[in-house]
């Protein structure tokens, strides 16, 4: 509990007992926080949404692992097979090296699209409703969600890079280039989640969404 200066008696354990806020150690709940204004609002909201996503990932890494399965299978089975049989023209580079960047893009896109669509679930529950009654401009909410998807994709991209490195894919270790990859993944995911949020905003119900889910971009074409 925060230190309440000169509180006449300690915070009461009995919640029903009325009394001035300071007595119960609730002095901060009387003072509205000072509002951020101007350009600082959007970055602050984006940060808040990204923090939430990181906290969720920290509590439950299952999604991270299950999403790693598909790229791992691609690399291990398709990658190894096609490297041997050389069925796909890759312009002289090993098929695994050819495949790995595509897998990063694919995972990022999938995560982003599903993340954007999750907004339908949040709309059905009260989570979104409650956020809409906070001093968060609608643009900041969408931007925040988009970058939260980006953060999620970025973490997934790191997983794919690690798997690829373990399989001996010839990766560049130039930090600037890896940073560039990070930037592209972040922005690309932000874009795709905005796209799916737009679709979610148009269809509004889950049932109709299933139809749209069928016409996903042909990701298998990598």
């Amino acid at each position: 509990m925060s230190a309440v200066p000169a509180a006449p008696h300690p915070a009461s354990a009995d919640p029903v007992e009325p009394g001035p806020a300071a007595d119960r150690g609730l002095d901060l709940l009387l003072v509205p926080p000072r509002a951020r204004t101007g350009w600082r609002v959007v970055p602050a909201r984006v940060l808040a949404m990204c923090v939430v996503e990181l906290q969720k990932l920290r509590h439950d890494r299952t999604e991270l692992y299950t999403r790693a399965v598909q790229p791992a299978l691609w690399l291990l089975i398709y990658g190894e097979t096609f490297t041997r049989i050389r069925a796909i023209p890759t312009g002289g580079i090993p098929y695994l090296d050819y495949l790995a960047p595509g897998l990063i893009a694919q995972s990022a896109m999938f995560i982003a699209i599903f993340y954007g669509i999750m907004i339908i679930w949040e709309r059905d529950s009260g989570i979104l409703t409650k956020l809409l009654v906070t001093p968060t401009p609608r643009t900041a909410l969408v931007t925040g969600k988009a970058f939260a998807a980006g953060v999620k994709s970025l973490i997934q991209a790191i997983v794919v890079v690690v798997i690829a490195a373990l399989l001996g894919v010839a990766l560049t270790w130039n930090p600037l280039r890896l940073l560039g990859v990070g930037g592209i993944v972040l922005l690309g995911s932000a874009f795709f989640s905005c796209l799916s949020m737009t679709i979610a905003g148009i269809v509004l119900t889950r049932d109709r969404l299933m139809g749209i889910g069928q016409v996903k971009p042909p990701s298998q074409a990598i």
Binding site: V52, S125, G126
Partner: peptide, 25 residues
Amino acid sequence: VPQQLSADAALTGRENVALFARVFD
């Protein structure tokens, strides 16, 4: 406080409240 369930089950109680502290600056 909307009628529907509005706390995020995938976060702790403290994180749920902290989110709203953040969005209220």
